[in-house]
Amino acid sequence: MSLTQRLGIELPILQAPMAGVQGSALAVAVSEGGGLGALPCAMLSPKVMSDELERIRAQTSRPLNVNFFCHLPVEPDPASDARWHQALAPYYEEMGLDIDSVPAGPGRRPFDDQACNVLETFRPEVVSFHFGLPSPVLLERVKAWGATVLSSATTVEEALWLEANGADAVIVQGLEAGGHRGMFLTEDLTTQVGTLALLPQVKAAVTVPVIAAGGIADARGVAAALALGADAVQVGTAFLCCPEATTSSLHRQALQSDAARHTALTNLYSGRPARGIVTRLMRELGPISPLAPAFPLATSAIGPLRSAAEALGSGDFSPLWAGQNASGCREVPAAELLQELASEIS
């Protein structure tokens, strides 16, 4: 059985789950268009997650991917927070904000019993994870209703680990990919390689299906990844300017400008490496800084700066997530973009 048959989709194209820039609308549009739509849940409360899943089920009966992070929660470190606040203090002063009133809160939830309880009501066909896999107990609950489990690998070693620990297919996340790196066995950025280099190595190493992600923005990229042995592809950045996405106007403008040609990995916005368009904050503090608190604790101090700057029309402090190839970003309906991406599949 091919991966598309197993997933119950017509086209071997998955929409990357993109927390903060999409909700149920994009997931529905892609699934209805014949691909696999995705709902990112790392930033959703159980109630909001349930509401979004209800919206999706009311609009489509086609397969859906629900995505979660699997990071280990960390305790706040007062010394680390103090160093981070000191680094951000000049920006707070510039924006007329009080650095001593930074809100608390992790910003992103790992997959847990509460999330699994919500999922069991809806029984999504696909559940995917970033930063490894959940505990064996939670993974067994997910598989109990027949869900196909996917997770991201950024090295051959991670792909082998995922296969050995219960992933039904591996998403090969090349260095070109936008958003958070899925790396979980190492923090060494020198291990991260491009999609075209990583894909055939993972394909040769594992027996489960392999999904290529990173730098795939048009029909030629889709065809090339499939020719290299991918069973399917995952596309994210190209969908960011679709009307169904919730991408901000500032972010959309940046994606369709020359600025999108310059992206970098940064840990400033969350505490973990993630690829985005280079901003003032990244140029002046990093983009990779030892001052950023552990994931996801860096987020809370950035939030007020981002809100204040965006109110003035500036993206200086905004996480403008994007892959290295934003050439496919256009304001066209997601279903139309999906058909364009599939147009050179033989």
Score class of each variant (00 low, 15 high):
A232R: 09
K203F: 07
D77H: 05
L36K: 04
T207E: 14
L297P: 08
Y92A: 12
P290E: 02
S45F: 04
V142C: 14
S289V: 09
D231G: 10
E344H: 13
E244P: 09
G182D: 11
G323F: 01
R83P: 00
C116I: 11
R109M: 06
T266S: 15
T266R: 08
G174V: 08
G179F: 00
V102F: 00
L162Q: 04
P17H: 14
A27Q: 10
L138V: 08
V142H: 06
D51P: 01
G174N: 11
V30K: 00
G215R: 01
N117P: 00
A223Y: 01
S61F: 04
V202P: 00
G215W: 03
P76R: 14
A164N: 13
G182K: 07
T4P: 02
L138Y: 00
P103D: 05
C242Q: 04
N65R: 08
E32H: 02
C116P: 03
G271I: 07
M183P: 01
E54W: 06
L198A: 11
T191Y: 02
R283G: 12
L285M: 15
G323N: 04
A79C: 04
G315C: 13
G182C: 11
C241Q: 06
E331A: 15
L305I: 12
E10W: 01
D218Y: 02
S257T: 09
T190D: 15
A232V: 08
A167I: 12
P12T: 10
I56Y: 12
L175I: 10
E157Y: 01
Y92F: 15
L341V: 10
A227N: 11
L53Q: 03
P46G: 11
G182V: 14
E344S: 12
L199D: 07
P273K: 00
A238M: 00
D51V: 01
T4S: 15
L72V: 14
D100W: 00
S327K: 01
L320C: 04
A29G: 06
L338M: 07
K203S: 12
P243Q: 10
G23R: 03
R280V: 07
C241M: 11
E94I: 04
S45K: 08
I13Q: 03
M43S: 13
R141N: 07
A42M: 12
L97C: 11
E75S: 15
P287R: 06
L281F: 05
V21W: 03
S152L: 13
I277P: 08
R306W: 04
F131Q: 07
G271K: 03
Q59K: 07
S327E: 03
G96C: 10
L255F: 02
P273W: 09
W84L: 01
L297V: 08
Q324W: 02
V202F: 00
S300Q: 14
G146C: 08
A259V: 05
P124W: 04
L39M: 06
I277D: 10
V278D: 02
R252F: 05
L189P: 00
L291Q: 15
R141Q: 14
T4F: 09
S270H: 10
C242K: 06
K203C: 12
P73A: 14
T207L: 02
E187C: 02
N67I: 04
Q192M: 12
L7E: 02
L14N: 06
T195D: 00
L305F: 07
G8P: 09
G194S: 11
V206P: 13
A16F: 14
S249L: 14
